[in-house]
Design a protein around this nucleic acid. Structure first.
Lengths: 239, 239
DNA sequence: ACCTGAACACCGTTCAAGT
DNA sequence: ACCTGAACACCGTTCAAGT
């Protein structure tokens, strides 16, 4: 069979590899492509393999299992986060900038935030972000123990918010009108509750319906920073 | 075939129903039993059906789909949460009591918290808890808009923390020694990082390793309350 | 109205066999 | 060392048929 001449209509020479060879990198890229187009639920080992014109078993030469693939996808996504340079405003501005930037990047990659809640993000980019947060908090003059715990809690808050928002977006499947209609329905439901059993819920129907996702995120971030400020000693942050 | 006498060795009479009839309640109970014993990943429509000695299709006469079953399971779990009575300490003590109680109940039911992150918990028990939080916050003298948003953010924080902790417990699969060993490994890894690229992470190895899950939850809760306190007007909370 | 068996279109992972 | 087909043990949901 090998001595038959290659027919002229065969465009890919038989000796060269027909498909680009598999590697962590090409698998990761394919998986991120599917994440962008179909969300996290579309990212299955079989779907990724199909995207690369091979079978699912082939992926296991490059990743121990699906969780390892997801962890590497998450860290890859965090690579897009831009951390503020030295001297771009005071510590609260810098901390907010990091928080908003992480949230934006996570939400822009479907519901990948779910992975960040399930694993401790210790990849190179996770560490880079953690390092940046610790730096900003220390610079603020917050004591070391509070710095360490605050970075932990802030990461949790950002990731949880991003997951909630991205999941909600996937659920509503698109148009902002549908999401708005859903929330209008919830508020209408609150209004219909018996005021004797739900005096506060019914009294606060107005405020409960106020504010979009971004306003709520900012409010929580602000609470967090107000709380942290109380840990700064009188002479702190100006050294 | 129907005129053949019932043989004496048949213990269940053919005319009475062989199994207890299906209903939302018995399905819910079976699902919660599986959740307790095998975690959320064990709760599949097929597994629940098997528990009830029937096929998965039978469940669809009582629940529209799996998500509806999960939502009802979540609200059922929230039913175990005990809300503080009037006059059990000041508002911070009451708010903390609710937060700790919700966290405890969620964690005691495997990784059910994941469901709470994905859906807006609007079942009867979700509403009862939301109402309780709103009441405590209003009593504190916090303005209505901040009350509404604070309840939203606090729910997110509690649920996210419960999910993280319960997931971690499922991952470590049991013994506290294994979990401790994992964290010791992480700290060892931090220690091994290059100090020029990670000056803060390496400098804070001590503080980063301090504190168990409960200490961290309490720290975040405290930050939240410190932040909220700044919204109480000078004459507020004592009316 | 409620329940069922069977089918459809999927999963993650393993393993022996190939190159 | 890397890749593969086939298999194992699962999924959620639908649908026509039964009672």
């Amino acid at each position: 069979m090998s001595d038959v001449p290659v027919p002229p209509w065969r465009t890919t020479p038989k000796s060269g590899q027909a498909r680009k060879p598999l590697s962590q990198d090409v698998i990761l890229r394919a998986a991120l492509r599917i994440l962008a187009e179909e969300g996290l639920e579309g990212v299955s080992m079989r779907r990724v393999a199909q995207e690369l014109h091979t079978g699912p078993a082939s992926l296991y030469a490059h990743f121990a299992n699906k969780d390892e693939l997801l962890e590497m996808m998450f860290d890859h996504v965090l690579g897009e986060v831009r951390v503020p340079e030295e001297g771009e405003g005071d510590w609260t501005a810098k901390l907010k900038a990091i928080a908003w930037e992480v949230r934006r990047v996570l939400i822009s990659h479907g519901d990948i935030a779910q992975v960040g809640l399930a694993v401790v993000p210790l990849g190179p980019n996770g560490l880079r972000l953690s390092e940046a947060m610790l730096g900003v908090l220390r610079e603020a003059g917050i004591p070391d123990q509070q710095v360490a715990w605050a970075a932990d809690r802030l990461s949790l808050y950002i990731t949880a918010d991003a997951f909630e928002v991205s999941y909600e977006a996937r659920r509503g499947r698109g148009s902002p009108e549908e999401i708005a209609a859903y929330y209008a329905g919830v508020i209408q439901y609150f209004r219909s509750l018996p005021p004797d059993r739900f005096p506060h819920t019914t009294a606060l129907v107005g405020p409960l319906g106020q504010g979009d996702d971004e306003t709520r995120f900012e409010f929580g971030l602000d609470l967090f920073i107000r709380g942290l400020s109380t840990y700064i000693p009188a002479d702190g942050g100006t050294s």
